[in-house]
Design a binder for these strands. Structure first.
Lengths: 219, 219
DNA sequence: CCAAAAGTGTTTTCCGTACACCCATGC
DNA sequence: GCATGGGTGTACGGAAAACACTTTTGG
């Protein structure tokens, strides 16, 4: 075997895929079907294909696991020696993504099964995945304040109430309705569609859409 | 030759080393002594050594080029295919660092000569180094507002005037003296040493030191 | 006494937060 | 008519920004 080759680090991507289901922030985890840490849950990831770029690999992983493309995807941080199952000296470039759970179609595998997990429920995380997850959540919560990332989680039309519940689920705390509305409207990231949504025994809600369904940051 | 080996990406680190000299923000560049892009200037960097971690490699590069250790060093972003001289499929993990120019001793090589360059003067930058540099400057300016990173650029004792000039050099704009003093003092990152510095025909300045010479972030 | 940098407070503006009531609808 | 979520304005407090003069020294 080529001696230099064994010393050459492998490069992998790891993707923290978030969604909001039933007012809970959830993350996609894969059940490991091989040693080490077999049976535990881990963030989806894998090696770069020959000649593939980092963003491309992350995007491919996202499609493989959820079937969605063109969602919010951002590089987070790069770790060395994250997953010792690959080999010592490996490097993992982490990403985070936001998908609309109602659009995602999780790969229906027997082995390496993907599944949404509530964030609290992280007892059985493999490797240092807990650290990445914490970091991703922190970044997501920050980004929410001064960008339009949430477009990745919302259907094409939505009420301000729905949007607020999504924000609250991610931030893990309640928000004041009036302050929330003033804030998101002042950012000019959403616009009225002119249509309303009548559901239930109460006043129908105006519907909004994101002005741009691509990353926009302020400040 | 092992076929898998040729497809295995190489991992490099690239370090954006900043300093402030004569009230100008400067960056350390290395003159390339080999093709491609021979003769152009590039950010210092290199491959990981066998078993070396990312932070360790960045730190080693910093010592090799400037002789300093224990300075502010932070991971920035990871690029694929940055430096095509290494090989296609390579990955470069970028870092940024801050050093006191009066302490740094640049490696006195003939080949691959390191040299401080003003930020404006970037006509002859190799590869995509310009992008990394822009990103590093942006991150540095942000970090300055809510951390004590500047400790890496200041001598052990300094006046508030000196500190303000350093901030202004990095931010590229003037700051109000009173607001600046109120701000940095309120952050509790510096403390009076009790000594003063008399230089020139004017009132002597009180000297300060950083309370902690290690990364501290607020908010 | 003059030039030069050190040092010092007050006012205004803006942003985040706290807070309570009426509106339109289905049943 | 009542329960339900939709929709709206104002007041307060803290941080950032604007702004000018006095102090201390060396020559």
């Amino acid at each position: 075997m080529d001696d230099r080759a064994t010393r050459r680090p492998l490069v992998a991507v790891v993707v923290v895929i978030f969604t909001v289901r039933e007012d809970r922030l959830e993350v996609l985890l894969i059940k490991r079907s091989a040693e080490p840490e077999k049976g535990l849950w881990a963030l989806p990831g894998g090696l770069l294909l020959d000649g593939e770029g980092l963003d491309a690999a992350a995007s491919r992983k996202l499609v493989e696991e959820t079937g969605v493309h063109d969602v919010y995807l951002e590089q987070l941080y790069t770790f060395a020696d994250l997953d010792r199952s690959v080999r010592e000296g490996s490097v993992a470039v982490s990403y985070f993504a936001l998908v609309d759970a109602s659009v995602a179609r999780l790969a229906p595998r027997e082995e390496w099964l993907p599944q949404w997990h509530s964030l609290e429920d992280r007892r059985e995380l493999a490797f240092a995945n807990g650290r990445i997850l914490d970091y991703a959540v922190e970044r997501l919560r920050n980004k929410l304040q001064y960008s339009n990332v949430a477009y990745g989680l919302m259907p094409s039309e939505f009420s301000l109430g729905q949007l607020q519940r999504t924000y609250e689920s991610i931030l893990g705390r309640g928000l004041d309705k009036r302050n929330f509305r003033r804030k998101v409207l002042s950012l000019d990231i959403i616009a009225e569609t002119g249509r309303v949504q009548a559901e239930g025994a109460h006043r129908p809600a105006k519907l909004y859409r994101f002005v741009r369904r691509e990353p926009v940051t302020f400040q």
